[in-house]
Design a protein around this nucleic acid. Structure first.
Length: 245
DNA sequence: AACTAGCTCAACCGCCGGTTC
DNA sequence: GGAACCGGCGGTTGAGCTAGT
């Protein structure tokens, strides 16, 4: 099967696989736009990349998912949603496509009854509104030894909400290192707080004293960080904590 | 044996963010 | 600044397989 441009589509043949493997072994991964040319394949860059990453790569584990892996997928999906590459990243030998397929064929159905229960719960007539205690965190300061801080400066961290993008841009323009550094450290610190708080949720009773696990400070809006920027950083991620989620 | 429905998973598609020019 | 290109991602599709009737 070929498309309008004469590029082959559809299932890969044994011969094509052999050519692709030989090419990757010779030149390494990457430069996918060159792969079809180098390998003598009439396939588009995406097709080559996908075939390698999802099927031909020697790192791929093709055995069925173990109980531990399934449990990990469920927990990570709860945490990350449909971010299959991130989930697959914690499962050695598993590709995002594998995880996604497994989720859709096996696990989604498991989750649906739970969702229905949630829905039914929501549709129940509401009891009288109770006031909820808003948990306010204690400001956290870092010691001068903290790796979150510049080794030379013991800077009191500003939450990033207090340093606007404009300020940072202006700081960059005038080469104001302190503001720039403060902003970055603020981000790093908030990253740490966010993750720390998330992991602690399972251990701490949220009803305990103020400040135990919230992400918000009074009058200051903290921007939640992007998970993938720091999530897998070994400094932050004690994977064992996931079991407490 | 023949047909059908459901399942699995490889592959495609469209979109996005980053980089280069 | 923006167009072109690239790598990468998540959603979706459909061919092939299997189990049930």
């Amino acid at each position: 099967m070929e498309n309008k441009r004469g590029v082959r589509k559809g299932a890969w043949t044994y011969e094509e696989d052999k050519l692709l493997k030989a090419c990757i072994n010779k030149y390494g991964e990457g430069k996918w736009h060159l792969v079809s040319q180098r390998a003598g394949l009439n396939r588009c860059r995406k097709s080559c990349r996908l075939r390698w990453l999802n099927y031909l790569s020697p790192e791929i584990n093709r055995e069925s998912f173990s109980e531990d892996e399934v449990d990990m997928i469920l927990r990570l999906h709860k945490l990350l949603g449909n971010r299959w590459t991130l989930i697959a990243g914690r499962l050695p030998g598993r590709t995002a496509n594998d995880v996604k397929n497994y989720w859709h064929t096996h696990l989604r159905r498991k989750m649906v009854p739970e969702k229905l229960e949630e829905k039914e719960e929501k549709e129940k007539p509401k009891e009288t509104m109770k006031t909820h205690e808003v948990i306010k965190p204690q400001p956290r300061t870092l010691s001068s030894h903290s790796h979150w801080l510049n080794e030379k400066n013991n800077i009191m961290v500003k939450p990033i909400g207090t340093v606007s993008t404009k300020e940072v841009t202006a700081a960059k323009d005038r080469d104001d290192k302190e503001t720039m550094v403060t902003n970055q450290i603020g981000r790093d610190c908030v990253d740490a707080m966010w993750w720390d708080s998330l992991l602690n949720l399972g251990e701490q009773e949220c009803g305990e004293k103020e400040g135990s696990c919230s992400l918000f400070q009074e009058n200051v809006i903290l921007e939640l960080p992007k998970v993938d920027d720091f999530f897998w950083d070994s400094k932050l991620c004690d994977i064992g904590s996931l079991w407490d989620l």
